[in-house]
Nucleic acid binder design. Sequence first.
DNA 1: CTAAAAATACCTCGTACGAGGTATTTTTTT
DNA 2: AAAAAAATACCTCGTACGAGGTATTTTTAG
Lengths: 205, 205
Amino acid sequence: MPPTRTILIDDHRLFNDGLSLVLRESPDFTVVEQVYDSRLALEACSRQVPDLILVDFNMPYMDGLTVVEQVKQLPGPTKIVVISMYAEKREIARFDELMVDGYIAKTVAADRLLTLLRQVMAGERVVETDNPSLPHIDDAVRVSYGLTKREIEILKRVKQDMTTEQIADELCLSYFTVQTHRKNISQKLPFTTKKEFYDFLESLT
Amino acid sequence: MPPTRTILIDDHRLFNDGLSLVLRESPDFTVVEQVYDSRLALEACSRQVPDLILVDFNMPYMDGLTVVEQVKQLPGPTKIVVISMYAEKREIARFDELMVDGYIAKTVAADRLLTLLRQVMAGERVVETDNPSLPHIDDAVRVSYGLTKREIEILKRVKQDMTTEQIADELCLSYFTVQTHRKNISQKLPFTTKKEFYDFLESLT
DNA sequence: CTAAAAATACCTCGTACGAGGTATTTTTTT
DNA sequence: AAAAAAATACCTCGTACGAGGTATTTTTAG
């Protein structure tokens, strides 16, 4: 059986190169091309007609979504696996619609990735969104910013874009109480930009 | 000369494992430990006393900032290099304050990383925030969402958390014009959550 | 048991923005 | 030259939140 001809699409060269080494460890995969610029992905795929592409979701210029949409238009039995930073249900849902063959979080170990990719090549659809061996505690985050348990509860809901009123309803609190918590939280956190804040929220489970 | 004893700290196992393979390619580096959970980073560093640690900035539980702060308290001449998703001046400034030995974006190629790490071990401080070979155009992003050039201009400033008024001042536009652009933008973009929106902004240069 | 920390609740003011309009001018495309 | 697209500008209403307060109750730690 010939090795699976694979194209890697990720603008993070370091990750792309590392992933390439991971695949090279296994004789049943061969990396025929590495694409560092999503705009070149389509061209590479139509030229190489790979058996498998691994595409990062978060890329500049053209996001993974667009790449996937376009590659699916191409002829050939190319399998598509999305590699993602995030293990969010919302993200997964978007790719579910696109019917990709796999959705794998970057938290998986290298050997686990190979196992999953082999399953994909065998015709399965795989979703591996989280590493179960990592316990979901946010104590460290909490302590490092001096947040209380209640404040974390509030933050988790802020992360989901819930409004003060919605949070109050869900936790059976007064609107004003949630207001107070949010105020205290923003005084404790050092972030100056919204982006920093949302990056921080990302780390809450 | 003995190889540089290195610890990798990144909760993205796949990246961590890939990075490990990258370093193993070079005889002057040896990876003594891979840490997948930032909470265990301090313990590993005090036990191993490595020559070099590579730490990811964006991690759950405890961010790179905290890890760096703590590791700097430990004895030993451990060099600290931050590996980051982002090439943002703001981020770099935060690590500049901490006086780490290197700040390297994930967009660098594997062999370039090795070169930079050797420079660090030779006593230099390195900052490599962007890959100059990638032209900064956001045409693809623009077209895929049907945004106009002007709208991109507005968005870039929204990304910097500028208010409607500030944007209007900078671009010599009426407040109302900027308001209109922002309205049109939010109608064109499909994002339902703030997080999705900020992830998208990340892709603008 | 007692002091500190956390959680609860209330109030107001100012800022900011999205969504709903309408409308004119400029630029680009055909 | 005409039509289409983009950019400009104005207006209002409602929602939401941060920052500034104050104050009571509950829980935790010493």
